[in-house]
Structure formats: structure tokens, C-alpha cells
Write a protein that binds this DNA or RNA. Structure first.
Lengths: 338, 338
DNA sequence: GACGCGAATGGAAGCGCTTCCATTGACAAG
DNA sequence: CTTGTCAATGGAAGCGCTTCCATTCGCGTC
């Protein structure tokens, strides 16, 4: 293994000078720089990142804490992260979270610059204590799709999204609109589904519409579960004429249930999702689009900025726009009169 | 920042002893061990991974080289990787590859244990020279979904998969069967599409069926592109009655094209995909299933094994089974006689 | 011609850990 | 009582880099 000493010897200079060349220090003469670069070339030398990290107290690594692939949207966001990181000198380390234990473990170790120089936390509200420790440790951090005190975050207005979806259905003439989403008190504390549900309730109330006791269903964020809930929802004569699902994944489950029940979409049932993940356009799903890829890119750029600054960025909130994308799963309810 | 020296001082022992406790060395008395553990607890000490890595010459990190999310299947495989890594002490670093330059850069730096202790290369045949250097450098490496000399690999028989799909269509009575897949000479050298195509050609020939000049289309691995190619393919009276797409992503594009052309699936057109990605069950797509998640898990376990061994594992090939999953996009062609 | 200044550079210290080697002390054997 | 052995332990060296400090050297200035 070629070390900096080998390069120094080969170039006839000191190790310090090689280091200066490596780090683009101006305090090296052109002649010397050229000689060192030549030696590096000849020996095919590459600095040991661990040694650099230990010495500098940084490790050229960005940690991404993500409830991995549980939501299809996370993948799309990750693509944005990767895109933003491309060309930077940072490696990307993935910290998968599937349980609170997982999460707390990671947050506990990640308070140190030797593990990651910066942290991107995706869709996961850090517990207050963890967050406080992270802020105190001065590791730059950006929250994506969740909010927290003292740190920058990139979010969308989920409540407003819920309103958009619900209003769309009401405008089409629906009166009996159901909601399918995540458990409000899920172990990892995801809040977006609940916020979207709030928008739904608000809008229903504002329109003077009743949300019956069976009209709201909660379950784990999985297509099959949503399908089961929808099948249950769609039996009987007083079944809803429209369903707002808190995510496209769940909306697809609703579509499956409708298909299984022999209901025509959008003839017998309208369905609105949320996110606009990749398959939604294939499924022709009407949905509330949030810029997933963009959000990953923007959050990462924010993090890189924070990394370059002397102090970590303070609290701020960047709110990305939502947009209703009308496709083929929504239409007016069949007129009983007709 | 708490260091090993702080712990040693607090416990009234030497740094070496603390290190021995950390690394579960048997050469520490129970009493001392207890005292050290107590000090660690009190001070909330966590070893600096960079320092450990530098000292040990390993970095507790696994590199995954992956053409990132270009194929939906890569995500599914990654899930398997993450699952296998969960509970191990290894971090996962993602090396995204989107161009040959990318790829060669990564392979060049990854020949060293200080960057990653082991390497999982996904769906990407390493250039012979890169691979030779990697083998020589003795960094444990496992190829997933590609093969190479001197290293273990986890693969499926893509040719056989192509045969399975094609035979299924022939058995249903189809005579005019088209193929849609990737460019044979794509920049990153992906071979699976081409292998699947070979199985298609073989089976067609064996059945005495003709593959017309316009019956095979190639294009980038993107749904919209596949859709465009399929739209082109499906005009005219002599259009095929069935299409075998080299991946589910492309098969979905074919389904879209059929829908746009007003063709009933499977009435007017049968479609078979490959992979069985998550959405395929939603789409009711008949496909050749390969165990994506499993493949990621198995390859990772193999890599962990290689890491634990004294020498990296030599050449071997683990072939995973394929399975035809018949759903709703295939049926016999409409009888002209009927 | 002596002096001062700044640019260029060599080299040592230090980052936090592991590991090897030397030391200590307890205990068994003679 | 002496010697040898072995377990337990302290501490220094070393991993490969960065950075600070001291040194050297060239050159302009008075």
C-alpha cells in the first residue's frame, strides 16, 4: 500500500508538502507541485480516507437516515439525494430504520463527526431528546419531510394536500367520501398521513359533509393492508362514492379492492392518492403530487451548504409546493336521479 | 469528545485494557472488565470508528456498487442487502453508477480496504481489468446478477428465463411474438436483457416460428421508451399477438401502449415481463419471477462469509431459480376461425 | 554588505484506536 | 525458599494523514 511517505520520498520532498499538494494549499511552488503530482501519478497513490478522516476530524461521509423503502416515496427521494451528491466528495452511508430501537441506536451514535459529517433524516421526526443532542453536538443536519426545533427542514403542507384532494372530490359532486391512511400513533411517529387526514376532516366539515364512523380506516402503510381495508369499506349499500388515500401505495390497494368488488373506477368509485410515485402515472391515478425527487435534491444541497458553513444552519423551513394531478380515477358520482 | 484515554483514567486502568474490553478479549479479569464497562456507561463512550479503522486496517463498511434505481429491480435487491446487513456491524455505503466513468472511478478507488471492507457489485459486469485489480487487491467481492472470473457470483439463468416466457406464449397458441428489451451494447454492459432475448430467439427457432425484422425492438430501460416502441410495434394488420418484454418495467410500457391503442389485454395482446417487481402483481402482469430480495440477501451473506474468512472466496456461481408467474396479461390469441 | 521579510519547505506532534511487548504478581512445583 | 509459569495489565509504537512550528533561502532595502 502506497503511503504519503512513499510519495514524499519519490518526489524528494517532505510528507507535509505532499499533503499540501493534495489539499490544494497555495503554499507550494509550482515546480514542487508538479514533481509531487508526477510522483502521485507514477505510484498510483490514493490517500487513505480513514487517516484523513482521523486527522481532520471529518470523514467525508453523509449519513442518510431513512425508514428504508417502507414507502415507495423514500426511493424517489433517495434518487434526489444521490443526484445532488454526485460530483461532491461525499460518500453516502445508508442508515436503515425499521423500528424505534433502530432509530434511537442510530441517532445515538450519529452525534459525532467521526460517523458522518452531516445527517439527512428522511420522513422521520427525531425524538426531541435525540434532536437536542444532535443540535448540541453541532453535526449539521437537515430534516426532510418532518419538522423539528433548531434545524432546517424541507417539507410540504400535508394538511393543505389533504384539503386539495378532498375539495377535488367534493367539487366533482361527491358527498360520501372515505379516508384510508396510516395509524395515527405508529411506532416511528410518522405524521404526514395524519396531517393529510386533518385536511380531509377540515374540508369535509367546511362543506357540511358528514364523516361517518366507518368512513375512516387506519392501517400499516402497505398495499395489501389498504386493499383489505378498502374491501371492507366498499361493501354495503351506503358505501362511499370516493376514497382519499393518504398515499399512492394505499390508493393502489383501494383500486385493487374496487376491481375485486367489480366496481368501476371512476364510474362507481373515485380514488385520489398522494405523492405521485412512479407507478401512479401508469395506474392513471389522480393524486396530490409532491416533488419527491426534488425534495431529496434540495435537502441534500441544503445539507452541503450547512457543511460548508462555519456553523450548522439554524431552524428554517422550506415548503415545497403541492399540485393536484387529475388522471383517470376520479369523476363525478353516478347520478341517482339519472 | 470522550476518548479511550478518558475511559481508562476513569476506570483506573490502561488504554490497552479498555481496548481489550471493547474487543471482547478474554485476557481481562472479570473485575476489571466490570469496572471498564461501568466507566464506558458513565461517560457514554463510543469508540471512534475512524481511529479503529485506521488502526485495524479495516473500516466496518460494505460498499455496494449499483446502477442506482435505473432498474426497479435494484431497489428490491437492495432491500435484501439491507436486511442481511441488519444486525451485523457493517455500515452500507452506496456507490451510484450511471456511466462508465462513474463505474471506473469507483472500481479504481475501491481496491483498498480503507474504503470498504468488501464489495457487492450489482447487475454490473466489471471490466476485466478492474476485476483483475480487485481480485489482486484481495478485497472480498461478490457479483450479483453478473459473472466474472475469480470471484463468487449470484445469478439467474436469463437465457432459460427467456425460454420460459417464450414457451409459455407459444404453448398458449401464439405464433407471432415480438420482443422488447435493452440495447445489446449499452454503455454499462448489462447483459441480462440480451440473454433473455437469446432464450426468446432459441425457443422461437425451435418451434419453427419466424422472428420478423420488425419484431425485435431495443431501447433504454425506461417505461416510456418501451411504450413508444410498443406503440410502433402494434400498428398495422400484421401486428404481433404477444410481446415478451425483457423486464417488468418495459412490460408496463407495453401495457400502456396496448391501452392507448385500444387493444384488450390479454384478448388482443398477451404480454409477459421479467423480474416480478412489486407493482407487477398490482398490474396483474404475467412474468418470469426472479427472487430479487432473496438475491440481495444471499449475495450479502456470501460477502459477509467471505469477510470472515482468511482468504476471499474464489470463483463460484450460485444460480437462483426462476419461475413463471401466470397472471392476467396472457391468454391464447383470438381464433381467426371463431 | 548587513538586515529583515516572506515564501517554501521539512519534520514532529497529534488524531484515537489496536496490538505487541515488557512487567508485575500470584501461585504451583521443586 | 527459590524458581518458573502464566494470567493480567500498562504503555509505547504505529496506523496514514494534517497542521503547526521552526528553519532555510532568496531577495529587496537602507
Amino acid at each position: 500500500m502506497v503511503t504519503i511517505a512513499d510519495v514524499a520520498a519519490h518526489a524528494g520532498v517532505g510528507a507535509g508538502t505532499v499533503s499540501r499538494v493534495l489539499n490544494d494549499s497555495p503554499r507550494v511552488s509550482e515546480r514542487t507541485r508538479a514533481r509531487v503530482l508526477a510522483a502521485i501519478e507514477v505510484l498510483d497513490y490514493r490517500p487513505n480516507p480513514l487517516a484523513q478522516g482521523l486527522s481532520r476530524g471529518r470523514c467525508q461521509t453523509l449519513g442518510v437516515v431513512v425508514p428504508f423503502f417502507t414507502h415507495a416515496s423514500a426511493v424517489e427521494r433517495l434518487r434526489g439525494v444521490v443526484a445532488a451528491l454526485d460530483g461532491s466528495r461525499y460518500d453516502l452511508v445508508l442508515f436503515n430504520v425499521e423500528s424505534p430501537v433502530h432509530r434511537d441506536e442510530h441517532f445515538a451514535t450519529l452525534t459525532r463527526r467521526d460517523r458522518a459529517d452531516g445527517l439527512l433524516v428522511m420522513s422521520l421526526p427525531p425524538p426531541a431528546r435525540s434532536l437536542a443532542r444532535l443540535v448540541e453536538s453541532r453535526v449539521p443536519i437537515v430534516l426532510l419531510d418532518s419538522a423539528g426545533t433548531g434545524v432546517p427542514s424541507v417539507v410540504t403542507d400535508d394538511v393543505e394536500g389533504g384539503r386539495l384532494a378532498t375539495r377535488h372530490l367534493i367539487d366533482l359532486g361527491h358527498r360520501h367520501i372515505a379516508f384510508i391512511g396510516d395509524e395515527p400513533d405508529n411506532p416511528l411517529g410518522f405524521t404526514s398521513s395524519t396531517a393529510r387526514e386533518r385536511g380531509y376532516h377540515e374540508t369535509m366539515a367546511a362543506a357540511g359533509l358528514v364523516v361517518g364512523p366507518g368512513d375512516v380506516r387506519h392501517g400499516p402503510h402497505v398495499r395489501n393492508v389498504a386493499r383489505g381495508m378498502a374491501e371492507d369499506l366498499l361493501v354495503g349499500d351506503d358505501r362511499p362514492t370516493a376514497v382519499f388515500a393518504a398515499s399512492d401505495t394505499q390508493a393502489l390497494g383501494v383500486l385493487e379492492a374496487a376491481r375485486a368488488a367489480g366496481l368501476d373506477v371512476p364510474g362507481d368509485l373515485s380514488v385520489v392518492g398522494f405523492d405521485d410515485i412512479e407507478v401512479s402515472s401508469y395506474a392513471g391515478l389522480t393524486t396530490v403530487r409532491q416533488p419527491l425527487f426534488e425534495s431529496g435534491r434540495i435537502a441534500t444541497e441544503l445539507l452541503l451548504e450547512s457543511l460548508a458553513a462555519v456553523d450548522p444552519l439554524g431552524e428554517s423551513e422550506l415548503r415545497l409546493d403541492l399540485e393536484l394531478v387529475v388522471r383517470q380515477t376520479t369523476a363525478g358520482p353516478l347520478e341517482a336521479a339519472a
